[in-house]
């Protein structure tokens, strides 16, 4: 399998990846946010499918999800909004959501719809690896979709190796034991953790997420990895300034 994620990971430049919630701030902003992100040179995009009970998310993403659902977002609507995705960009796009939404849509149908839109990967934090491997891996692969696993500072080496084996693009390193957005900058503990995983020389590349909010935190994390995912900080930014103000936000991360 060779999709846009793999192609981008082969390039040496660090990846700036942005997470946002589909259907937020307005229902039909999804594609427009993507356009803004691409125009400003973002390397990878995670589209969050809003869920009523997002267990792994802190207040910022919870609120954007609640608003998006009020706006009328649904899985079906997301795939309609993304049907022309590949006419505007070739950056890798990943759908991030909770497994129940996928299960109710039908796992096979969900993967088919993703492929039709040109989605490259799926992050489902609450789909455990053993169930993925036993029941869904072949469906994902049939539709050229990377399954992306998360690890945390508490994940054992043995488990990391197992997740590495089952993954085929990058591993999502959660920066510390936390829900999204609940971080106050990185200290020595986080840096040691980034280095420790880097030194394990896994077959997959590493991308760090959770708690990255500015250039300092970005640089700290990117030092040992292929790049970073920024979510809550971006959502806060467009909540306050509007999605048209994406440029200064990305610029502040990218000026090296």
């Amino acid at each position: 399998m060779q999709n846009r994620i793999h192609q981008r990971l082969q390039q040496p430049e660090k990846i700036v990846s942005i997470y946002f919630t589909a259907g937020y701030p307005k229902r039909d902003d999804t594609l427009e946010v993507i356009q803004e992100l691409v125009n400003n040179g973002v390397d990878m995009i995670e589209v969050g499918l809003p869920y009523s009970d997002p267990l792994a998310d802190g207040p910022t993403i919870q609120q954007s999800s609640t608003q998006a659902l009020k706006n009328g977002m649904s899985s079906q609507l997301l795939f309609e909004q993304l049907k022309d995705l590949r006419q505007i960009t070739s950056v890798p796009v990943i759908v991030m959501g909770y497994f129940n939404a996928m299960l109710q849509y039908g796992v096979k149908a969900f993967c088919e719809s993703c492929e039709k839109c040109g989605i490259d990967g799926i992050i489902m934090p609450d789909l455990p690896i053993d169930i993925y491997q036993a029941e869904y891996q072949s469906i994902f692969e049939q539709h050229q979709l990377s399954f992306i696993s998360l690890i945390t500072p508490q994940t054992s080496d043995e488990r990391i190796k197992q997740l590495d084996e089952a993954s085929n693009s990058f591993i999502y390193m959660v920066s510390s034991a936390s829900t999204t957005g609940s971080q106050a900058g990185f200290g020595q503990t986080e840096l040691d953790y980034f280095k420790r995983i880097h030194d394990m020389r896994l077959k997959n590349k590493l991308i760090v997420g959770f708690g990255i909010k500015d250039q300092t935190s970005f640089d700290q994390a990117a030092q040992y990895t292929s790049g970073c995912i920024i979510g809550s900080a971006y959502i806060k930014h467009i909540t306050e300034h509007g999605l048209r103000q994406t440029k200064p936000f990305i610029k502040s991360l990218k000026e090296q």
């Binding site: 267990l55 792994a56 497994f99 934090p125 609450d126 789909l127 455990p128 053993d130 169930i131 696993s149 998360l150 690890i151 945390t152 508490q154 994940t155 054992s156 488990r159 997740l163 959660v174 034991a177 936390s178 829900t179």
Partner: peptide, 19 residues
Amino acid sequence: SLGFYGNFGGAFIPEMLYP
């Protein structure tokens, strides 16, 4: 052993909770 009563149960948890 996987926590299923028939078709129901299991542990559908984010990796953060796994340990």
